[in-house]
Design a protein around this nucleic acid. Structure first.
Lengths: 359, 359
DNA sequence: CGATAATATGCTCAAGTTGAGCATTATTAG
DNA sequence: CTAATAATGCTCAACTTGAGCATATTATCG
């Protein structure tokens, strides 16, 4: 076979070499992490397991996502491993599951050495499920906006943005002496701030959840950043030295994984009929709308939403009415699962409403 | 911490348990695989390294993507590991790099045990680069349509679809006695066939590269499927018993990774200005268009394409003209990299032209 | 019982976007 | 000079999108 790596003498590994080389240093353990989402009472919720891990300060208990190591002897694929884990830990049989990203950053509490000396790499997953009442002991559904209070714009711009985040980020951006090459490719601090948080009149992009999280992390404004040994801008800037907290932290890199899940889900809602995974078998169009709005953190125009859903052939009428919600009775609909086998790319394709209320 | 997994007694692993349990069986090696794309002479090309691995039949040499194991001791992140690998193997300093997916399927030659007993999981990456002439010995740029001859529709529907693929798939679909539950969720064989390959008047979706590849693999029509011990529909159905080959095969799961890269790139072209990563510093709009068309495997409407690019503020005029291509001289443009810091989501948003020629 | 609140649902309309094609202009090849 | 090849400008109908008006149907409260 061709020799490709003659310049650096260290290691000329290729396909076959992969099996010849010493693998000791290269072995890692893959942690499978699930961001399991449901929507109830107009709030998107994720399943968390509280853990008194090494990360959390003694007084606090940071939530974690359900997770466990991938055992290649036991499971044929990563997905199967994840499903099995979740089933074991929470008794939930997952339906919709989607792999998000594999994080291997050392120093972000994902890529740390465990007690056996193995490095851990995290694979993040998004799972959607209808709401199930009785969960296991210890596991709980938590409103995802508790971890991301700046992401819910349904009642207007969250106060935390102008009151807390923007000033701290401005300080951070002002403190930028010279952009590192890395920062130049990603845009300068002030630009990223404006773009991601919709400052100075830039439009809010509901899908940039991960970008916003990473920016806050880089700026040292999150507990996780402090934990990871970053300069803690919170105590440095808050003045009072109070323990400022921008959203609840999570263990390991789990808040980052949740941010990835939120970004992906918000994006996907617009071009794939995934919202229906979260709905009961029959539902009214307004119920569907509220679910979507909860996830997007935005209101959409009610009449246009119906037009989209109905004309898109995504639902079929059941003929049955419900008076469940005060007001004129609403017709109940059913998801037309067949669309998946009809058109190549069905979806919701929705644009956020510019008017506040969805009347 | 909460006990979550009492039902199945095997293993009650949680965050902290992750470090207590025996990790021996769970250690894996992560293979980093790069689908490095460039476009030259109106063809998208990927960098391959030929290898006489265990997969290939004695007489053949199946191409592989550049790859190597991730060494957590040496590299802080997976991305850095990949860049370093590629640099070593091919002397290419990658610019744009994007993680695609982590494949861990046993039995698809990704998740096999190597000689040290370690299981291998593949992480696929997409990288974009301008064309560089002098590559390393052994590494070569190969037209990606050699691996996917059914994906290039620029000169009309590829003959291989109606002549070879459709009949074989129809046989396969007809042979479906009863759908497995798995097949039901993914749609029945005949539906998937129609949707993915645009049969019976369904519109061709250029982004479904991975779906098409997986369908062909499942149907046993690809060499890789035969290698993995699947019923080989090729010899079973071809009649003559000839060695039919639908596109060049690749080692391991590399053709699958390439399919993932193609899907992602074709999708991304439409909402992010990634095409410019493949262009020289100055270029004419038609050159940009040809590059995009090569990647999509489709023609687009020339005038509308310009409108989109120009009005979208993606480029700026240089004022210089070139007569390089016979015909009226074209103005040269430059990518306005600033757009990345201006609007939240710039992109090309192009729709394939319905008329064949781009006049 | 009538007014009010809270939806549900139908419809309209202007503005913007998209797909397609015509017309004109500037070069090179022959 | 003519044909071929592009580049570029412009138009236009069809469709999509964003927004709002109007009306219908229920529960509830006084």
């Amino acid at each position: 076979m061709a020799k490709l790596a003659d310049t650096k003498p260290k290691r000329a590994v290729t396909g076959t070499d992969l099996s010849n080389n010493d693998m000791q240093g290269k072995a890692v353990v893959m942690g499978l992490n699930a961001a399991i989402v449901t929507v109830s009472e107009d709030l998107p919720k994720i399943l968390v397991v509280p853990q008194a891990g090494a990360n959390a300060a003694a007084s606090e208990s940071w939530d974690a996502l359900p997770f466990g190591p991938f055992d290649p002897l036991r499971h044929r694929t990563l997905d199967i491993g994840l499903r099995d884990w979740v089933q074991e830990q929470t008794h939930l049989a997952l339906g919709y599951v989607e792999q998000l990203y594999t994080f291997g950053d050392r120093g972000r509490n994902a890529m740390e050495v465990n007690e056996d000396g193995a490095h851990v790499v995290s694979v993040g997953y998004l799972a959607l499920t209808r709401t199930h009442e009785s969960e296991q002991e210890g596991a709980a559904w938590r409103d995802w906006y508790q971890f991301f209070p700046w992401e819910d714009w349904r009642v207007g711009k969250p106060a935390i943005i102008e009151q807390t985040i923007a000033p701290l980020l401005r300080d951070w951006a002002a403190g930028q002496t010279d952009a590192t090459p890395e920062e130049l490719t990603r845009g300068k601090r002030r630009d990223r701030m404006r773009l991601y948080f919709g400052l100075d009149g830039v439009h809010w992009d509901d899908e940039k959840v991960l970008e916003r999280y990473e920016l806050l992390y880089e700026a040292g404004l999150l507990r996780e950043a402090a934990r990871d040994g970053r300069r803690n801008a919170l105590t440095a800037h808050a003045g009072t030295g109070h323990d400022l907290m921008i959203g609840l932290p999570m263990q390991f890199d789990h808040r980052r994984i949740l941010a990835t899940a939120m970004s992906r889900l918000r994006a996907k809602l617009k071009y794939r009929p995934v919202a229906f995974e979260l709905m009961p078998p029959v539902f009214t169009l307004y119920e569907l709308q509220r679910t979507v709005e909860a996830l997007l953190g935005l209101h959409v125009h009610k009449q246009n939403f119906r037009r989209l859903v109905e004309k898109g052939g995504l639902v079929e009428r059941t003929g049955k009415m419900t008076t469940r919600t005060g007001g004129r009775p609403a017709e109940q609909f059913r998801f037309r699962r067949e669309v998946l086998n009809e058109r190549p790319a069905p979806g919701l394709r929705l644009a956020p409403s510019k008017s506040r209320a969805s009347t």
